[in-house]
Each structure stands twice: as structure tokens, then as C-alpha cells.
């Protein structure tokens, strides 16, 4: 990544920081500026997965969040966390996909509290998520709704990495070939029968380690970091 691009990114984050008024959001943004150091060698990551009632950030809600931090290329299960959120109305038919039914969410935290908790957990780390654009959009929408402002997230999308690696060896993308399970299969990662935000975050984190290991040490991971 060029030094110019690096500086431009840092500038964007600094600008955004100046616009924010909420302390927790400010803190997140400030630490994300520090991540943009040109020779930051041991960037901490955090694998993230959200379960939602549907795929539309404008109308659907987040029902659970799973995170697994990654330090020095190792997933830290001791710091893995899982939060269930209270939602308005019912999870409805989406329970078929995520297996979480309404009564399980009754003990959940409210979305506002969950967002503040999550920002604290994510601060100073680069998010790793599969098809991360969608998760980030949900988070931004919810931040805007609850706080009237949002941060710029720093994240890596394992699906983007996988698409690029795939296209280097293949001419076209087949239906489903970049899904989490199919991608994991190519790295000989185990099949996980159960699904939850936490298990999927773990699965995504493992895929990320596998991708990095396969790319070798020569690759600068900073080039994969996206801001949104």
C-alpha cells in the first residue's frame, strides 16, 4: 500500500473523529487512527459475526453478536464473547436460520448497551468478518439510529480475500464457492455442524488465519483493510 494512501486513510479517520460527540465512539475512532501506522507489525484483530432478523439493514435488527479476538495469529478463546440482544417485535421466521427464538432474547441486553459494549471490544483492533460489508452496514445503521452518528469501521472481509485468491486460479466464480463453509473446506478446516454468532465468528477467524498462513509472510495485511 502506498504511503500516500495510508496517510489519506489516517486523515479520513482523524476528520471523522473530530465530528463525533459520543465518548465511546470517539475512543473507537481515536484508536483506529493509531492502527493506521505505516509499520504497525502486530495488528490485533477480532473476528466478528452478527445474527440478524433479515438481510436489510434499514428494516431488520441485530439479534446476537459473537467476537473472538486474534493476537499474534492465534484465536484467543479465553476472550471470546457472545451477546444476545433484545429486539422490537418477534424474530419471526428468521428463527429458522439462526435458531434463536423470542424467549431466549428476553434476557438479552438492549441494542444501545450492546453497541457501546461492542465498540469497546473492537477498539484498537481490526475487525475480521465474512461478507463483512453487511455486518458493518448493520452496525452503522444502528449507531446512527441510537446515537445520531457513526464511526468509520476498520475491517477485513475474508470473502474479499477469498474472491481475489479464487480469481487468481479460476476464471469465474461459481454459485456458493465463496461461502464461509466452502471457503473453509479449501483450507481443510473442520466442518462445524452447529451455528451461532460465536461459532461463525470462530469459523471466520480460523479462515482468516488459514488465508494468512497460505499467503505467507511476504504479504502486507494492511492492503486488505477497508474503511467504511
Amino acid at each position: 500500500m502506498s504511503r500516500v494512501k495510508q496517510l489519506w486513510r489516517k486523515h479520513r479517520l482523524t476528520k471523522q473523529l473530530q465530528r463525533l460527540s459520543q465518548p465511546v465512539l470517539q475512543n473507537y475512532q481515536k484508536l483506529s487512527c493509531d492502527l493506521m501506522q505505516p509499520n504497525h507489525c502486530a495488528i490485533p484483530f477480532v473476528a466478528l459475526d452478527l445474527e440478524m432478523t433479515g438481510l436489510n439493514p434499514k428494516t431488520d435488527q441485530i439479534i446476537s453478536i459473537g467476537i473472538v479476538p486474534i493476537n499474534l495469529d492465534k484465536l484467543q478463546l479465553a476472550q471470546a464473547q457472545h451477546k444476545k440482544l433484545q429486539i422490537k417485535g418477534s424474530v419471526g421466521d428468521s428463527a429458522i436460520i439462526h435458531g434463536i427464538v423470542d424467549h431466549q432474547l428476553e434476557q438479552g441486553v438492549d441494542t444501545r448497551t450492546a453497541l457501546l459494549w461492542l465498540l469497546t471490544q473492537l477498539a484498537g483492533k481490526v475487525i475480521v468478518a465474512h461478507h463483512g460489508h453487511l455486518d458493518i452496514q448493520f452496525l452503522k445503521t444502528q449507531l446512527n439510529y441510537h446515537f445520531g452518528e457513526s464511526v468509520i469501521f476498520c475491517y477485513i472481509d475474508t470473502l474479499t480475500i477469498e474472491r481475489e485468491r479464487w480469481l487468481r486460479q479460476h476464471d469465474m466464480i461459481y454459485e456458493g464457492c465463496l461461502r464461509l463453509g466452502a471457503s473453509r473446506h479449501r483450507y481443510h478446516l473442520p466442518v462445524y455442524g452447529a451455528h451461532s454468532a460465536l461459532i461463525d465468528a470462530l469459523a471466520c477467524g480460523e479462515l482468516f488465519l488459514a488465508q494468512r498462513s497460505a499467503m505467507g509472510n511476504g504479504v502486507n495485511i494492511q492492503q486488505w483493510i477497508e474503511l467504511k
Binding site: D73, L75, L77, A80, L209, A210, S213
Partner: peptide, 14 residues
Amino acid sequence: TCQSLTVGYYSKSL
């Protein structure tokens, strides 16, 4: 014990 584990990946190419 499970919660204390860390998870790593070692590519054959290493």
C-alpha cells in the same frame, strides 16, 4: 480448559 485454548493454523507451505 477449552476456553483457555488458543487456535492456530499452519499451512503446509510453511
